[in-house]
């Protein structure tokens, strides 16, 4: 039987539906008798649903094309940024 600590360590994978069947059965067996983890699982799952359905941090449509224009204007003008943040591909 797994502990609450074990359950929480696997909670992320359970929410992402990324657990092997054998582990899923153990997690579900734990949920069946642990009200605390049941509440935790249920409320975190609902939190995720609210986050994904809330339309938060959305990209306002009207600014999209003006931003493309601004970026391309700066590129064509040869605008340079300080080269202190090198990116690796």
């Amino acid at each position: 039987m797994i502990s609450c600590r074990d359950f929480i360590s696997e909670l992320g994978n359970l929410l992402d539906d990324d657990v092997a069947n054998e582990i899923r059965e153990q997690l579900q067996a734990h949920l069946a008798h642990c009200n605390t983890c049941q509440v935790l699982y249920d409320s975190t799952r609902k939190t995720l649903h609210i986050v994904t359905e809330s339309g938060s941090f959305e990209y306002p449509g009207p600014i999209a094309e003006p931003l493309v224009t601004k970026v391309m204007d700066r590129i064509r003008a040869g605008c340079q940024l300080p080269n202190n943040d090198a990116q690796e591909s």
């Binding site: 605390t36 509440v39 935790l40 249920d42 409320s43 609902k46 649903h49 609210i50 986050v51 359905e53 809330s54 339309g55 938060s56 941090f57 959305e58």
Partner: peptide, 25 residues
């Protein structure tokens, strides 16, 4: 650790939820 409502998102408008999520995130 307290039980949540069955459909918590229905208690608020989408705009209220958006503001709430952005504020808390």
């Amino acid at each position: 650790i307290q039980s949540w409502m069955d459909t918590p998102e229905e208690c608020y408008s989408r705009e209220e939820l958006r503001r709430l999520v952005e504020k808390e995130v």
